[in-house]
């Protein structure tokens, strides 16, 4: 028998109505630090390149470097500002929901997407955390179904990630399709079941 009490499908006007859980508050700082490091590295390389061009034998190359300098500075400033500010815009718009039968993850500022992975399709899960993540006490949870889909939820607290992983693993066990079960209990008529739990079936019409 199919029970999914948390999700009465008909009462669900859309994914917007779910209680999205935010990522860890420190995640913004972690992304900003990562961006800062990237900015510093690129800046250092650019500075070295500038002085190499200036200090070289060719005077023309030096003049070229000087003429390029304002554009390069402006471009670099813009780039640095945008990647430092971006996490503050993007992270609050990410979020996840764990339901009884599936896990949802939303991302995107302009191009938004909401992906749902049912637990009975998950093949395995993975937690990883890089150097910076560990510094901030963060971890990433990946959920892999077969094929190309799957989540990578970045920026969870370490305990949250571990608790989630355990929960997802339990759900996978619970939802696993057992052939014995499949064969012993006669299948209810899929048609009748579908119409009982989901009255309209698939959406009626585009209009």
């Amino acid at each position: 028998m199919f029970i999914n009490p948390e999700v009465p499908l008909e009462s669900l006007p859309g994914a917007d109505n779910l209680d999205w859980l935010p990522l860890h508050p420190r995640f913004v700082r972690r992304l900003q630090l990562g961006a800062l490091l990237r900015v510093l590295v690129i800046g250092a390389i650019a500075t070295v390149a500038y002085f190499l061009m200036k200090g070289g034998d060719s005077a023309a190359l030096g003049r070229f470097a000087d003429s390029l300098l304002p554009f390069a500075l402006a471009g670099f400033g813009l780039f640095a500002a945008s990647i430092l500010i971006w996490p503050m815009i993007a992270v609050p718009r990410r979020g996840y929901v764990v339901r009884e039968k599936d896990i949802l993850y939303k991302t995107g500022v302009l191009w938004r997407s909401v992906k749902a992975v049912p637990f009975n399709r998950v093949q395995h899960t993975k937690i990883d955390s890089g150097l910076l993540d560990r510094r901030f006490g963060l971890a990433n949870l990946s959920v892999f179904p077969a094929g190309a889909g799957g989540h990578k939820i970045r920026g969870l607290g370490t305990d949250t990630a571990e608790r989630l992983r355990v929960y997802v693993s339990e759900r996978i066990e619970a939802e696993a399709i057992e052939p014995e079960d499949d064969q012993n209990s006669p299948l209810p008529d899929p048609q009748a079941e579908a119409s009982a739990a989901h009255e309209n079936g698939p959406p009626a019409d585009a209009g």
Partner: peptide, 15 residues
């Protein structure tokens, strides 16, 4: 359609 697909997947006991 998304919800219906999820429902079908989650309620399916077939391999």
């Amino acid at each position: 359609l998304r919800d219906y697909i999820l429902y079908t997947v989650e309620s399916s006991r077939r391999r």
